[in-house]
Simulated scan of single mutants.
Amino acid sequence: MRPYIISHMMTSVDGRIDCPMVGQLSTDEYYIALERLGACSKLSGRVTTALECTAVKEENSPMEGNPIGHTSVYVAKQSDEYTIIVDTHGKLRWQSNEADGHPLICIVSEQISEKYLDHLRELGISWIAVGKERIDLRQAVELLNEHFGVKRLAIVGGGHICGGFLEAGLIDEVSIMVAPGIDGRKGQTAVFDGISHTECAPYKLKLESVEQWETDIVWLRYKVK
């Protein structure tokens, strides 16, 4: 059992999700559409979180100490919705146990030190530590369902975390808001980025709905076949 997982992103016409560029066009519609997806927990990667989340105190190198070396789950608080952060090596330092009005859950790998988990415990932040060298995303979302009751999950940033979930076969729906602008800069992150299996065939989608907004944004929703 795992949550129903939606990737919800706003992009330029050329598929870039560089936040400052998209922000110059519009972001209100993104959050309106996110609300229309229904009640769900929100998941972000470390880079997006460090840029946008006010609960982050600072980003630093991983805390020293022996890795715990086993799967670990700590439930600090139960809730209907959570703000979930994927931070493989525990580089983020926190000043609050909530973000966007919901309790935090940090997903890390088993390389994490007990010292970092103590940091989370002292602040009342839940965690899931799973995966020997890198996070086992499939097991992580199963544990989100089992221990936290997460039934629906929206991935809200960024491209590498979306790519990781796609590569793991964990995305059920793709929600894309195409903003009326072109980025064109070389090296900017795409909606799905960093997939390592270059021999993969394209991931096939089934179009479910199309909406044109008054601001010239087009909202596309697909099911993953």
Rank of each mutant, 00 (worst) to 15 (best):
A168P: 02
W213I: 03
E64H: 06
A140L: 08
P62F: 13
W219L: 07
T83I: 00
S96D: 15
E114M: 07
R221V: 11
P202D: 06
R138W: 00
I32D: 15
G163H: 13
L37P: 01
G163V: 13
V178G: 01
H119I: 05
T88R: 03
V224G: 05
I84R: 03
M21K: 14
S7I: 12
G169M: 08
S44E: 06
D118G: 12
V150D: 00
E142H: 07
L170N: 01
I195Q: 12
R138P: 00
A39Y: 06
E58Y: 06
H119W: 01
T54V: 10
P103S: 11
E214F: 00
Y116L: 09
Q111Y: 02
A55T: 06
Y4H: 15
A154F: 05
E110T: 11
L43H: 03
A140V: 00
E199F: 01
Q139R: 15
A55H: 09
A76S: 15
I107N: 03
L51Q: 10
G124T: 09
G158Y: 10
R121P: 01
A55S: 13
C19I: 13
S209P: 03
E81R: 01
L120N: 11
R2S: 08
I171C: 11
A190Y: 09
H160I: 15
S26Y: 02
D80L: 05
A190H: 12
